[in-house]
Nucleic acid binder design. Structure first.
Lengths: 243, 243
DNA sequence: CGGGCACATTGACCTGGATCAATGAATCCG
DNA sequence: CGGATTCATTGATCCAGGTCAATGTGCCCG
């Protein structure tokens, strides 16, 4: 799995360098830690890369690592024995993963785009949390934010129509500063397949495809390529998303 | 809303008493705090009671309080403008509520059974978290546990059949030590209405009722009263729940 | 450059659960 | 104690989205 990995070098004067220059720092819980203390963080992290399609967390495996995604994107999912799958979220740069209380992971994680991640062992992670209260506070904030998102997703899965689900999905994707959203018709990249979208929205591939086609025929969106969608009418899409 | 409330009395020698003798303490994050420090906690808490049917958190309202449920049970839910409702969880004694990062609550909460709760203002809660790292750790654990439950619920809502959803619901209810589960056929109390169950499982009242009737006709459960269900065959129910 | 392969789209039909509509069954009062 | 009200159950019908099947549409590699 680990294509590239760097053993900790605690004594080095440049020990904090990898974290200091990390492009994901601003998006990550790591920014709770002062520059001067970054060496401590860097000493505990093991960096690795994961290629698309590769699984780096397996549901049911011993949960002995925490991960911080520093590049790329991944999907989190749960499987039923007969193969039914629910994708519980897509995660990108800066996302923290694996905060399990139980002894095993409750979900699997698979790279969609080439992923780079920092891995921390369970014990080291807890040691860091003890040392840096600000880090723990940041994690708590993240967890709370994710809970809110999870509740929103439950509403979507339990009560929204296919049309509303797809609209909600696109609405969320084009909302945060994710991409050049500068008041022109926002274009969203879809790194995931139709199958992933379907398993995220609790639908089938066919329904996702049909619904997107219909939204296009109504002039709400354009689909230059299967992995790119231009939102022509964000306001109407948002209205659709909420019923 | 607050039928009964007690102003803080920091100086009193008995200041920690209400927390010390609190029946919910063992089930709550409060047990992260030493007996000697309970006065601090008690000084910040405002106790209140809420009757069934009363809402004590309103989605969209300013999120300026945190709550700790010390008795009774409540439902958490999100509403759509046209009245569609998704219940995101049922909570009982010891449950912590209102950990919002955003300025407003992301869900509403309504009592099912008479509820007693401790309310902490936002600023006081954060002050407590700063004073008692163990409390913050406990909250983080709780949040992680809830995230795992939320993911499980997403699987249920996105991919399970009505039969599997109802079976899962009963399975979870009879699993934890909630009630005299002593190896005899466990009996679960359902304080919530069929309508609540339906909105929790992403189904209609009718489907819930029909599914329960079918499970009964198959000898898996008995329904002595609408609010009581006896699980005759927990193993088969669990198998059903997971597909 | 063309055959093969994986993914996406589109169409035709079917079904699980929703909707609509009575009919119990329990609780509350007057 | 009886009418009203609310909640749960059961039945009849309908339809959104699933299933099955065929047809694009790239893209990779020989």
């Amino acid at each position: 799995m680990a294509v590239f990995s760097r053993p900790p070098t605690p004594g080095s004067p440049l020990a904090q360098e990898p974290c200091l220059s990390c492009g994901a720092r601003a998006d990550s819980v790591c920014n709770a830690i002062e520059d001067a203390d970054l060496g401590r963080l860097a000493a505990f992290a093991v960096v690795s890369e994961v290629q698309p399609g590769q699984t780096f967390i397996e549901e049911g495996d011993p949960a002995d690592s925490f991960f911080n995604l520093t590049a790329g994107s991944a999907k989190l999912y749960k499987l039923m024995t007969d193969g039914r799958r629910q994708i519980t979220g897509f995660v990108g740069r800066g996302h923290f993963l694996g905060l399990a209380v139980s002894a095993t992971y409750a979900f699997s994680a698979e790279a969609i785009e080439p992923v780079r991640l920092c891995r921390f062992s369970r014990v080291r992670m807890f040691r860091l949390l003890g040392e840096f209260p600000a880090l723990e506070r940041r994690l708590l904030e993240r967890a709370a934010t994710e809970l809110v998102a999870a509740q929103e997703q439950m509403l979507l899965l339990g009560r929204k129509t296919a049309r509303e689900r797809v609209a909600s999905f696109l609405d969320v994707l084009c909302r945060p500063g994710a991409g050049p959203c500068g008041r022109a018709a926002p274009v969203v990249a879809l790194p995931m397949s139709r199958s992933d979208i379907a398993d995220y929205l609790g639908l089938t591939i066919e329904t996702v495809s049909r619904t997107l086609s219909r939204l296009r025929s109504e002039g709400l969106i354009e689909i230059p390529s299967p992995t790119t969608i231009r939102i022509c009418d964000p306001a109407r899409l948002a209205a659709l998303a909420s019923g």
